[in-house]
Design a protein around this nucleic acid. Structure first.
Lengths: 223, 223
DNA sequence: ATAACGTAGATTGTATACAATATTCAATAT
DNA sequence: ATATTGAATATTGTATACAATCTACGTTAT
């Protein structure tokens, strides 16, 4: 009986379609900042890039639009969303609200395995010399600390929020020397989780998010 | 110079495509409860219903999937998302967090026109005898009270949250005699806004949401 | 009778093709 | 010179067509 495997989290029923692959690639490009805000994405161009027709490209762009990462103007193409300063502030506001809630719930149910995983990502983040990978480790660290909350909807919204400002997060780490501060704050958040103090972990997470926003804001203002 | 009109909120650059129309129709059907959770949506079937090919249908379904209203299993079709009791609770949690924040910010900037608009929807909700329209007025009332916050991202997330549980909200109003309570609470929320007391409006909104969840929960448990 | 296998039918995912609409730029008028 | 018009080009949105994959059901073997 192989059906028993279905419950193990292995998604047997779904393999990646072209449209899935293109979606992932474009999303990666946008959130990493390789594809810059304001850049326009022509269906034909993307299609040739991946050696496919425009159909799966359109489907990928549609999904990106539903998530807000690109905007479509009929007969004018898709454009990578450009955030106003107010947009950025608002998204950080949402993060500073939801993420502390989730980590607090998560700490209450946190397993030793999760703590170990978080510690590993924290260490990888701290010791990483390739700055292009900081954003990734940072996200995996926080994600690990949120998962035991078993709040898929919160995580979906947080994920959407982070996607939108991820390129800013990376820029903030790289361009403003945010690493040292982030390293220290990660250790403090992790410590609160080890202690089992969810409320403290939440408070520190909120401070971490708002603090990094302030640094980012100052940097953007001086541009 | 016609370009000046662009800023008036008239979306000159975009008219509705087939895929837009189908998206709206399916979304309406799902959030109103006419298309029930668990029901499967076959591309061919929907296409015939709207006299179009499967292409625009697929694009509409893709967008609904990105929003979480349907789920796709490759080669197995699209299914209207089914919420577990935990999912419903979680979504109400998010609403109870974000909506008070937004109304509080909104009250601080609220115009007399907005108050008038909200009063009108409040009245329409209270006096409506056709129960199938309660959900619509309810949503318009709350939406009016949120709009002056100028928080598009918050509103997007709140909209997604409400979309997912909208059929439950309607059921709660119709099946549990929630109308009387809702009518009273709407007046109280509106009164706080008229007074300019954002914090109070927020507290009442939170209580309104959590209270309606409790009623819904009790109803669902007795099924 | 039960289980494994294989074929027919159904459904999806994508390529190609075409029609509708928008954009561009040269030609004309003011 | 500037503004306006119109045809050529480009781009999008959708229909049709086909290949890949899955499902259902009957056949065969045990």
């Amino acid at each position: 009986m192989l059906e028993g495997l279905t419950g193990l989290g292995v998604d047997l029923a779904k393999t990646a379609s072209s449209s899935d692959i293109i979606y992932d690639a474009l999303r990666d490009g946008i959130i990493s900042g390789q594809i810059k805000a304001g850049e326009s994405l022509r269906q034909e161009h993307v299609a040739k890039l991946f050696n496919v027709s425009r159909i799966p490209v359109r489907e990928a762009l549609n999904r990106l639009e539903a998530q807000g990462l690109v905007q479509s103007l009929r007969y004018k193409g898709y454009v990578v969303s450009l955030l106003s300063p107010a947009d950025v502030e608002e998204i950080y506001e949402v993060r500073a609200t939801l993420e502390p809630m989730v980590i607090e719930k998560s700490v209450a149910m946190m397993t030793p395995e999760t703590l170990e995983e978080a510690r590993r990502y924290c260490e990888l983040f701290s010791s990483e010399t390739d700055s292009s990978k900081w954003g990734e480790w940072n996200r995996l660290f926080h994600g690990a600390l949120y998962k035991d909350a078993k709040r898929p909807f919160h995580l979906k919204l947080i994920g959407e929020a982070i996607d939108r400002v991820d390129s800013y997060i990376r820029a903030q780490l790289v361009l403003t020397n945010g690493m040292e501060k982030a390293r220290k704050e990660h250790l403090e958040i992790l410590a609160a989780c080890v202690e089992g103090d969810g409320e403290l972990a939440g408070k520190r997470t909120r401070k971490h998010i708002l603090g990094s926003y302030k640094v980012l804001r100052k940097y953007l203002d001086n541009q």
